Structures are given as C-alpha cells and as structure tokens.
Computed example of a mutant assay.
Amino acid sequence: MINLNGELLEEKNANLSVYNRGFTYGDSVFETIRVINGKIMFWEDHYFRLMSSMRIMRMEIPPSFSPEFLEEEIKALVSANNLSSSPARVRFSVYRKEGGYYTPTTREVGYVTTCSLLENAFYLFNEEPYEIELFKNHYINSGILSTIKSNNRAINTLGSIFASENAYNNCLLLNEKKNVVEALNGNIFLVKDNIIKTPPLNDGALNGIIRKQLLSIIKKLPEFALEEISISPFELQKADELFITNIAVGIQPVSKYRKKIFDSKTSKTLLSKLNVKARLG
C-alpha cells in the first residue's frame, strides 16, 4: 500500500502525472525514516528537517502538516502494509504541484509515502570488508541546497555507477574547493588519535539525522574531541578510522581506502551508544 496525498492505495493504483514537478524538475524533497514496531525513530529531527527543506525550496507548507498529522499518516501506512510489529523503512516525499516550467505556477504541494520491510530492528555492526574511493568526476556545490534531501541526486547516481563498475562499496564526494564532503549515501566521519572530525554543513554536507545524533553523543564523551571542520583528501590515509552514517545502517565502518587499512574500534563504540539512544528516543 502507498499513501498518496492522504489516500491509501494499492501500488498499481497510486499514479503520479508525467508532469509531476518532482519528475520534470526534481522539485521535491524527501525523508527516509526508520519505524520500529510502530515507533518512528528520531521523528522530531525528521519533521523539522522536512519543514526546513520545504522552506528552503520555497514550498507552501499546508496547515495540516503538523508533527502529529504526519506521524499518523506514516503509522497508518506502516499498519496498512502489516509492518506495525516489524522494522520498516519509510520514504516520505513532498513535491510541488504541477504547473509552469522552471517558474512554477503554484507553491502548493502534494505528497507520497512508501514503505518496505527492514531486516533488523536496530543497527548491527558490519564487519565485512568495505572499500571506498574518491569520486572526482563531478563536485557538490558548498551551500545550503546541498544540505537538504532533494530529488536532485545526479552526482550520487553517477558516483554509485562508478563505484559499481570499479568494485568499490562506496565513494566519497568532493565540493568545488576539493574538500571531502560526504559519502554517496551518508555523512563521513574521520578519527585520528582522540579527535573525531566531520565536514561542516557549509561545505555542502547533508544535514543528516544520524550525523546530528552522533554529534550529540560524541560531545558527551570526554575521551574524544569533536571538530566540524573541512577535511582534505590528503587526511584520509592518515586517519585511524573512517566511518559513514545514515538512517538505514546507522554507522558503516570503512575498512580500506587505497592502501590504507582502518581500525573500527571507535565506530563500534559509537554504534552501541546510537542504539541506546534510538531505543530511548
């Protein structure tokens, strides 16, 4: 079942127009959300990021889009797909209603929500080899548009094809200043000695939900110093650890970048604390 503008429909009946602006212009934003046994993980953060993304895209936020209303919409869809007692992955997409060319004729929005079964309720530590490389064919522009989750994901798509063609598990993306910004599907963290670094949002890094959770966790750990600072590609091979974060996997440790093999002690520690926070939150 799919939720299309508040109506629960079977997938074959949930149709969007070919003139939908999310398709024709990428005029759409979305959230990927974990729902565990009917409970939305980090819902407040998802909600406020969605509202912020809509404002940045100059979309008109409907009066009905309260946290309570959208939460019930998500839970109703999960229930309709018989996933209320299972871990589920939900994608909540908001698009500007059709009309116009580059200049829209309206700022009103529609929405579509899908969900699927997740394998595990909480985040598991992945000890399988995980090799990454830089993707240098195209660059992310530093600035506020790069921090939101929109349908404009050409660089991520091309980078994913490059990774697949060259047998890498993931790639890191650079901005126009040649600084490391993020991975293809999440934020990047670097550990060197007792310092944990991650690129700042003004470098073009996605304002990730798990990124935000980890920043909060790390700040409370006296054994680590946290820096939101630009990261040069030259720092990567000098690091003790690299790990990638997103809502789907939590923390993904990187085992290899070029000739460097990384430890994963810090990412394992942080993953256990993230699971605790998810259970409590």
Rank of each mutant, 00 (worst) to 15 (best):
L8F: 06
L9Q: 01
L9W: 04
E10L: 11
E11I: 13
A14H: 04
S17K: 03
S17H: 11
N20D: 15
G22F: 04
T24S: 14
Y25E: 11
G26T: 11
D27L: 10
S28M: 10
T32C: 09
T32H: 06
T32A: 14
I33M: 14
V35N: 06
V35A: 12
V35W: 01
I36D: 07
N37R: 15
I40N: 04
M41P: 01
W43D: 04
E44M: 04
E44A: 12
Y47T: 08
S53Q: 05
S53E: 01
I56R: 01
I56Q: 03
I56F: 00
I56T: 13
M57G: 11
M59D: 02
M59S: 09
I61V: 15
F69E: 06
E71Q: 14
A76W: 02
V78H: 00
L83Q: 05
S85A: 09
P87S: 15
R89H: 13
R89Q: 11
V90M: 07
V94D: 02
R96T: 10
R96D: 05
K97N: 15
K97V: 01
E98F: 09
T103E: 13
P104K: 00
R107C: 05
G110V: 03
G110L: 02
L118G: 03
N120T: 11
A121C: 14
L124W: 00
L124R: 15
N126H: 14
N126G: 06
E127G: 13
P129E: 14
Y130N: 05
I132H: 03
I140S: 02
N141D: 14
G143T: 09
L145F: 12
K149P: 06
S150R: 02
I155R: 05
I155D: 10
N156E: 12
T157C: 08
T157A: 13
L158C: 06
F162I: 00
S164R: 09
E165A: 11
Y168R: 01
L174H: 01
N175G: 13
K177A: 15
K177Q: 13
N179R: 12
V181E: 00
E182V: 07
N185Q: 15
K192I: 00
N194T: 10
N194C: 05
I196G: 07
P199L: 00
N202L: 11
D203T: 13
G204W: 01
A205W: 01
A205Q: 05
L214S: 04
L215I: 13
L215G: 09
S216D: 10
I218W: 02
K220S: 13
E223I: 08
E223W: 00
I229D: 12
I231C: 07
I231K: 01
I231M: 14
P233Q: 05
F234C: 07
F234W: 09
E235M: 14
K238C: 03
A239L: 04
D240G: 05
L242A: 07
F243Y: 07
N246H: 10
I247D: 02
A248Q: 14
A248F: 13
V249H: 15
I251E: 04
Q252Y: 09
P253N: 12
S255R: 04
Y257A: 08
S267Y: 00
L271E: 00
S272L: 14
S272A: 12
K273F: 02
V276C: 07
V276T: 11
K277Y: 10
L280K: 13
